[in-house]
């Protein structure tokens, strides 16, 4: 999932300072799962905004809603059209893709991010997430015992460990395991250590922004 964290209240409150009718728009996708921007967090953030304004003696109306997936126009468009004229700013609790979908669909509408999007990651335990995929467009997990060196090695090395690890931990931080030592243990368990001896590779980096086109799915082609 995409993992995101709420911005500090001070920053959020400054963003929406000049607005009175605020649509706090959650997303029932990734940010619900990582507990940063689902319906529950929408409720809490709305309450905090109202409490802050009440304290300052300034009027505010909050409107609470959550899209199924804020990165999908078909999930966003009808909902915001239904709510038209009931708000003058959107405070999005989706990832950056969700915020941009709203901005793209409603170019005349001010939209602010309430979250900072951190990474594509996995849950280590409830409340702990780690980055797992850099979306590099050329997956090699089959060769690396299911451990991504592009993401989980701080240097993104493809041809083995850098030698900076100590006691199995990365030179960057003692709370991170050396991805290459993990790959080594994984491949050893699978009896595949010879994978490590394969020809060195240089990664062909994708050109950003990435784009995927599936002709078989495009509506225009069908009509």
């Amino acid at each position: 999932m995409i993992v995101a964290e709420r911005k500090p209240m001070e920053e959020i409150l400054a963003e929406i300072e000049d607005f009175q009718k605020i649509l706090v728009l959650g997303c029932k996708g990734c940010t619900t799962v990582c507990c940063s921007g689902g319906p529950k967090e929408v409720e809490t953030l709305s309450t905090l905004i109202r409490m802050d304004r009440k304290q300052k003696g300034k009027e505010v109306e909050t409107l609470e809603a959550s899209t199924e997936l804020q990165c999908e126009p078909e999930s966003v468009k009808p909902m915001l059209e239904n709510l038209a004229n009931q708000y003058d700013v959107v405070l999005s609790m989706a990832c950056g893709a969700g915020v941009q979908t709203v901005a793209k669909l409603f170019p005349d509408q001010r939209v602010f991010p309430a979250l900072n999007t951190n990474f594509t990651g996995m849950a280590e335990e409830h409340g702990v997430w780690t980055e797992a995929c850099l979306a590099c467009g050329d997956c090699i997990l089959g060769k690396t015992a299911g451990i991504c060196p592009v993401t989980r090695c701080a240097k993104g090395l493809l041809n083995g460990a850098c030698g900076g690890a100590s006691e199995g931990k990365c030179e960057v931080s003692k709370d991170r395991p050396c991805a290459w030592q993990e790959i080594y243990h994984g491949l050893k368990r699978l009896n595949l250590l010879h994978y490590l001896k394969e020809k060195p590779q240089v990664k062909a980096w994708p050109i950003h922004p990435g784009k995927v086109v599936r002709e078989d799915l495009r509506q225009e082609k069908a009509t």
Binding site: K40, E43, T44, T47, L48, R50, M51, K54
Partner: peptide, 11 residues
């Protein structure tokens, strides 16, 4: 009890 219950009580 959720965080919001607590905040709502104060609100």
């Amino acid at each position: 009890i959720s965080v919001n219950h607590i905040l709502r009580a104060l609100e």
